[in-house]
Every structure is written in C-alpha cells, then in structure tokens.
C-alpha cells in the first residue's frame, strides 16, 4: 500500500521540479503551506470570491514585478514603478475625460510611460548614474507630476466603457487576471526562449564578458527600463479601471512590493540570477500572505512587521542553502 504512494509523491515532486526548476521547490512548499494553513484556520480562504480577490490584488503587483524582474536580472533596479503606476493612472483618466477613445488613451499612456522609461535609461546608461539613485530621483519626479496634472485629487473617469479593463470578466475570470497571465507568459517566453532573454543573464552575470562578446549593453538597458515603465503603466491603467478613477496617491510603496516579490522568487540583486517562474511564486506568496493576514484580522501595523519578516526569512533560507552548496 505504502509503496505506490511514495512513488507518486516523488513523481509529483519531480514534475514540480520540472515546471519551476529545482531551486524553486522551497517556494512551492512555502506557498503550499500558506494555502494549507489558511484553509485550515479560515475555510473562507478557499471561497471562489476570496481566490478571485487574491488574484486581483496579485495582478497589480504581478504585472509590475514582471518588468522589474528584467531590470533586476540585468543587475539594475527600478524604484520609479510605483510612481509610474500613479502617473499613468491619472494620465489615462484625464485623457479619457477629454473625450478621447479609450483605446487611444491607453496607447498614448503607454507611449508616455516608455518616455519615462527612456529617461531612466538615459541617466543610467548614458550619464552613468547609479540605477538606485536615478530611479529614486525619478520616483519623486513622476509622483510629483501625477499630483500636478491631477491637482492632487482623484480624477473620476466619466466614460464607463473604460471600466471594463479593470472590472470586466471573461468566463468568470476578471480581465486584470487574464492580462496578468498574458504578461507572465510573454515575459517567461522572452526570458527563456529568446536571445534577448539569454543576454539579460549574460549582462547581469558578467557585464565585462557581455561587452567583450559584442552585446550592446546600452541598448539592452534602454529596452529593459522602457519595458519596466510600460508594465507599470499597464498596471496603473488597469488599477484606474478597477477604481473608476485615476489617483495620484495610488501604488505608493508598490516598487518595494515588486522588488520583494522578485527577490522572494530567488533573484539576486547583483544580477544574473532569477526567473519568471520565481517571480510568479514570489508574487503569489506575498499576496496570499497579505490576504491571510487580512482574513485573520491582523492589525495593519503588525502586517508591516509580518511582511518584512517573510522577506527576511525567505532570503535567509536561500542564503543558507546556497552556502551549503
């Protein structure tokens, strides 16, 4: 009786290994424990409504974290994404309120976001300012712009058609979740199956080697920071749809959530190590954890402590395991 069970569990383990890569086992286990624990303590956790809530809040961070994964993999950092979310949310709201077609407004907002990414790229690659400093600066500048164009208050979107990007559903699945899945798939495929993705690892792993093997590092940097800003803008547009307004205060601190998810997913801040499957797991763990704290009615102040501890524990486990290797 017991033998086939052992077999099937090792089979299960090896298929998990295949999907997420061997190093991700720890993360899958953490996520599994979180889900199992919450289900036991609060059965309402598994209700369809709560699961949809989890995926909805994962979508905001997940889309942003996908762009940030590329940045961190290449050895950079982008702290401006939270502000870009807010700025593009208010921008798209104001554009639509001028009577512009929703699709046009979205495309235009994404174009503005790519300009914001180019500004980051310009300072980091051309002027050679440290990425942390650059995006710390643009984080404040972009946030300021969001306040200025909106006069500091939420911009209510009059065109109800636009709400569908945030509130619509297809086969019962909310649009933001569908977009999130698309983003994850596209970013995963690019990272694991294209020359571009491979070269991200080379640049992050050994910049001098990348230079000596003919990779145009500056061009890559521009593309990476533009994609990070565009993903943040996409997330901001969806958030505006969900909230029926563009809010200049939105997504403050989201840049740190994104970095937390990426690092939880096993990425090294020094670059060259990380994966999209890791980021997916990082986003899910973070979101499930926060959802659990809410369901357990944990005081908001303690939630900060819990989230921070989660990150520290996860990276500690990772360091210890690496040392043993």
């Amino acid at each position: 009786m017991s033998e086939p069970q052992v077999l099937s569990s090792t089979n299960y383990l090896s298929s998990v290994k295949k999907i997420f890569g061997g190093e991700k086992i720890g993360l899958v286990v953490i996520l599994g424990l979180l889900v199992a624990g919450m289900t036991v303590i609060k059965p309402v956790f598994l209700s369809p409504q709560n699961l949809i809530n989890i995926l909805l809040s994962a979508s905001t961070n997940g889309i942003v974290a996908s762009g940030v994964t590329y940045v961190i993999l290449s050895g950079g950092l982008d702290l401006s994404v939270g502000s870009v979310v807010a700025l593009s949310g208010t921008a798209v709201a104001m554009l639509i309120n001028t009577g512009m077609n929703s699709v046009f407004a979205i495309v235009l907002t994404l174009l503005i976001a790519s300009l914001l990414g180019m500004i980051n790229g310009f300072f980091i690659t051309t002027i050679k300012v440290n990425a942390l400093i650059t995006t710390l600066g643009t984080m404040m500048v972009y946030r300021g712009l969001a306040y200025i164009i909106s006069n500091g208050s939420a911009v209510y979107i009059k065109n109800k058609e636009f709400y569908s990007i945030g509130m619509g559903k297809v086969f019962g699945i909310p649009n933001p979740v569908i977009i999130l899945i698309f983003v994850f798939i596209i970013f995963s495929v690019i990272l694991s199956r294209t020359v571009f993705g491979r070269n991200l690892y080379v640049i992050g792993g050994n910049k001098e080697a990348a230079r000596l093997t003919g990779i145009n590092i500056n061009l890559y940097s521009y593309i990476i920071y533009v994609s990070s800003s565009v993903m943040a803008a996409l997330s901001g547009i969806i958030l505006a749809g969900r909230m029926t307004s563009g809010q200049p205060t939105a997504a403050s601190g989201l840049e740190l959530d994104a970095v937390t998810a990426v690092v939880l997913g096993g990425a090294a801040l020094t670059g060259g190590i990380g994966s999209m499957s890791g980021t997916i797991l990082g986003v899910l763990i973070l979101t499930v954890f926060r959802n659990g704290l809410l369901l357990l009615n944990v005081d908001a102040f303690y939630q900060y402590i819990a989230s921070g501890s989660l990150l520290l524990i996860a990276v500690t486990i990772d360091r210890v395991r690496n040392r043993n290797n």
Binding site: R198, Y201, V202, G205, N206, E208, A209, L212, I273
Partner: peptide, 12 residues
C-alpha cells in the same frame, strides 16, 4: 571576471 558567466551552464 572578463569571460565566463559563472552561474550559467557550460552550454550557454
């Protein structure tokens, strides 16, 4: 420092 990407495979 100038050639190999130590964390990547021999093949890559």
């Amino acid at each position: 420092h100038q050639a190999l990407i130590m964390d990547r495979s021999v093949k890559e």
